[in-house]
Write a protein that binds this DNA or RNA. Structure first.
Length: 766
DNA sequence: AGCACGCCGACT
DNA sequence: GTCGGCGTGCTC
């Protein structure tokens, strides 16, 4: 594979002038039948620009005569037996799809019967011509400066040496006066602002690459390319505490965040200090801001490339181009960060792989964790799968010996105390669903500082029922669940938003309803009565809370919306465990444990954490501070049932004949079985393929053939009727998070407030 | 997606 | 013989 750089070696340099240079091109098309490389001759005028990774336009009979694509490689001999066309143009000199990333998306697409171009579109931001021109000009200027330096003093070892520091000095900053080429951290001063905690930094604040709270030998092995695989790929259990990071923008000069964010930043900084790049991928924006804030104290701004979708297009492209430069960088982003370019990748760190946001909603729906695993395998970088609560997927990797385990010192384990739900007592505490022991603990903790109460749902009353017959109240328009947002407010449908003004019970025609259950608002009211004198704050997604004041403060938060309190909460109470566990889903237990452990990690190190109303093996593992055990038990259950992640799955949706044919083809393979089909609507069915990991390649290949067949099949006339529309086609999705859930068509897009009220979903096949 | 190509029925 | 409708399949 030829070395590539943003300027790059040209085809002319790689090949004798006159020799036939062939460009192999990935077309930018979602059609599965076009998902392979096409050969084109490179005309002499384009030889200098035609390097791997650049965007090109090519002639393509049909498809509007021309298509765009990416030049993947330059070869001497064509593999297509026929007359080749010529490249029409090289769109820009920037090699946006480098060979390493192409290999990644190619393999990811092959695993999921998807197309590489679908993944390329996700992973490469849209081109911004102005941004690109500025970047190219700057790079050219830097190149010129280097050449000048070399000619002025050819004997200078720095300038002549290989390696990122010499190749590419920072454009501004005293890089020239700082001849300490020990990696990029050494060549740039830290940004203005307070020095990091710990060992005081003198002179240019180069932060000691320390990862706090973990065995230094284990961290060394992790970042040592010579260490054995399971020491370089680890399931890292995060420190379950909040941690302070210096932040000049914060009122107190410090910003508190889950310690995990700081750990990720420290790992990335340590990698950068070793002269290699790091990728940090987090599920959401809050995590991203935290890691960015932690990185700010550890590395110069120039050392970080942000590549998240939340940015403006120009900013995103700028970050992407920074990642593309041939010198080490920390790439920080969400799902797509794991597929970003990065010079000499030394670390891939993924935070909280169980978070649903790591599932890519766009085709082919590849999970960030799988992309990270593939990238690790190809690049040989270290891999950190960090979380508070291990997923069954990662547990499987641990059990097969592919990844090792890395946990903070045992003293830092977090014990979550199960607390029985009281049944008969009365009073404000009972009405607020708080057992008396927990009430006493919270009352005492409030004297010392803020207390967190986690509840399952936002709003006031999450469910209404008919006052006469008890039937759950449903929207008269769309059958959605009806909830009351505030006390006294008119209830409204959670799906379509219609106000339930002239509501009637669908069973008994009753006209009066009553509330069932408690949302965050109602719980807050009740807690106010149970703890008079405490200030109550509600954080439920709709009302995002950034700052928790000190003093007698009770924070009532829905899972996932918990704010961080300075120094940590003095107690954490997890209230609706039983209800959370009642959700019908393959991954309920994993999800619940993740929500609980994430909230528990916001408590001060020695503060009590209580889980109300949950018993059994889950509660005892949490009581021992060993959520990993739960993952192991869950995985054992899935093995018995032959459910993911013990096996892989692929959902096939489409017309009955197509699904039946594809089903028959995959079912013929060994180690493969098919569940269904079940009817989805009038003309679509769904079947689910289950297969052993070792059969993945064959299953994906077989389904890709079925997809091509479906995409190229012409509409067939039915009963001599005019050409029937061929809308549905066959759709295939691998390794769905909830493979047995109904897609429930017609429902409005889930918002955080509505997520808990997802329409009914049935599990099938077990 | 579009467009050529080929097979078959109906015409000069 | 040859024209043209439409279904099939390919795109370097």
């Amino acid at each position: 594979m030829p070395e590539s750089s943003p300027i790059g070696r040209s085809a002319a340099e790689q090949h004798d002038v006159g020799a036939t240079a062939i460009a192999r091109v990935l077309l930018d098309s979602p059609l599965p039948q076009l998902d392979r490389l096409f050969d084109y001759r490179i005309p002499p005028r384009l030889r200098a620009l035609a390097v791997p990774g650049v965007r090109v336009t090519v002639p393509l009979r049909a498809a509007g005569r021309q298509a765009s694509g990416y030049l993947i490689e330059v070869v001497d001999e064509q593999s297509f037996e026929g007359v080749l066309s010529e490249l029409v143009d090289v769109v820009s000199a920037v090699p946006v799809l480098q060979p390493e990333v192409y290999r990644l998306i190619r393999r990811a697409a092959d695993r999921a019967a998807g197309t590489a171009s679908d993944l390329a579109r996700l992973v490469i931001p849209t081109r911004q011509v102005r941004v690109e021109k500025a970047w190219l000009a700057r790079r050219a200027a830097e190149q010129a400066a280097i050449e000048e330096a070399v000619s002025e003093d050819a004997a200078t070892a720095d300038a002549a040496s290989e390696g990122p520091a010499a190749e590419n000095p920072a454009p501004e900053g005293p890089a020239a006066e700082n001849p300490a080429p020990e990696g990029p951290a050494a060549e740039n001063p830290a940004p203005e602002g307070p020095a990091p905690e710990g060992p005081a930094a003198e002179g240019p604040a180069v932060t000691a690459p320390v990862v706090l709270g973990y065995d230094p030998a284990a961290i060394d092995a992790l970042l040592d390319p010579a260490a054995p695989g399971p020491r370089r790929r680890v399931a890292l259990t995060a420190i379950p505490e909040p941690a302070p990071v210096p932040d000049p923008d914060a009122p107190s000069g410090r910003r508190w965040m889950p310690a995990a964010a700081r750990t990720l930043a420290e790992l990335a900084a340590a990698t950068l200090a070793r002269g290699r790049s790091a990728i940090v991928s987090v599920p959401d924006y809050r995590d991203l801001e935290n890691v960015a804030a932690a990185l700010k104290v550890l590395v110069p701004a120039d050392g970080v490339a942000r590549v998240d979708a939340g940015q403006s297009n120009p900013d995103r492209y700028r970050g992407f181009l920074r990642a593309l430069e041939p010198r080490p960088v920390i790439v920080l982003g969400m799902r797509t960060a794991v597929a970003a370019p990065a010079h000499d990748l030394g670390l891939i760190a993924l935070w909280d792989d169980g978070d649903g946001l790591h599932v890519e909603p766009h085709a082919p729906g590849v999970h960030t964790r799988d992309l990270a695993l593939l990238r690790q395998e190809d690049s040989g970088a270290a891999l950190v799968l960090a979380s508070h609560a291990r997923t069954t997927d990662v547990q499987r990797l641990v059990e097969v010996g592919y990844v090792g385990e890395l946990a903070p010192t045992p003293a830092r384990r977090r014990r979550i105390t199960p607390t029985a739900q009281l049944t008969s007592a009365d009073g404000p505490a009972a009405r607020a669903r708080i057992p008396s022991t927990a009430w006493r603990t919270v009352a005492a903790a409030l004297d010392e500082g803020p207390v967190l109460v986690q509840v399952a749902r936002p709003g006031y009353a999450p469910r209404l029922a008919c006052a006469d017959c008890g039937e759950t109240a449903r929207c008269t328009a769309c059958q959605g669940p009806i909830a009351q947002k505030r006390q006294g407010a008119t209830p409204a449908c959670q799906w379509c938003g219609a106000l339930a003004v002239e509501w009637r019970c669908s069973r008994c025609e009753g006209e009066r309803w009553r509330t069932v259950g408690s949302g965050s608002g109602r719980t807050a009211d009740e807690l106010g009565r149970a703890f008079p004198g405490a200030r109550i704050i509600v954080a439920d997604g709709e009302a995002g809370v950034q700052h928790v004041p000190a003093g007698r403060t009770l924070v009532v938060a829905t899972r996932g919306a918990e704010p961080v309190a300075e120094g940590g909460y003095r107690a954490v109470l997890l209230l609706d465990g039983e209800r959370m566990l009642a959700r019908e889903s393959l991954r309920v237990v994993e999800d619940c444990v993740r929500w609980w452990c994430t909230a528990a990690a916001l408590a001060a190190p020695d503060a009590p954490v209580m889980l109300v109303g949950v018993g059994g093996a889950v509660a005892s593992a949490l009581a021992m501070g060993q959520p990993e055990r739960i993952a192991a038990e869950e995985l054992a259950d899935r093995r018995l049932l032959r459910f993911p992640p013990a096996v892989r799955v692929a959902a096939m949706v489409g017309e009955p004949e197509q699904v039946a044919r594809a089903s028959a083809e995959v079912a013929a393979l060994e180690g493969v079985d098919v569940l269904g089909p079940v009817e989805l609507d009038e003309d679509r069915v769904r079947a689910i393929v289950r297969f052993d990991y070792a059969r993945g390649a064959e299953v994906a290949e077989t389904l890709k053939v079925a997809l091509i067949r479906s995409a190229t099949a012409k509409p067939r006339r039915v009963d001599g009727r005019p050409p029937r529309r061929r809308v549905p086609g066959l759709r295939v999705r691998f390794d769905d998070h909830e493979p047995f859930d109904d897609p429930a068509p017609g429902r409005p897009a889930a918002s955080p407030a509505r997520a808990a009220d997802a329409p009914p979903s049935g599990r099938m096949g077990g």
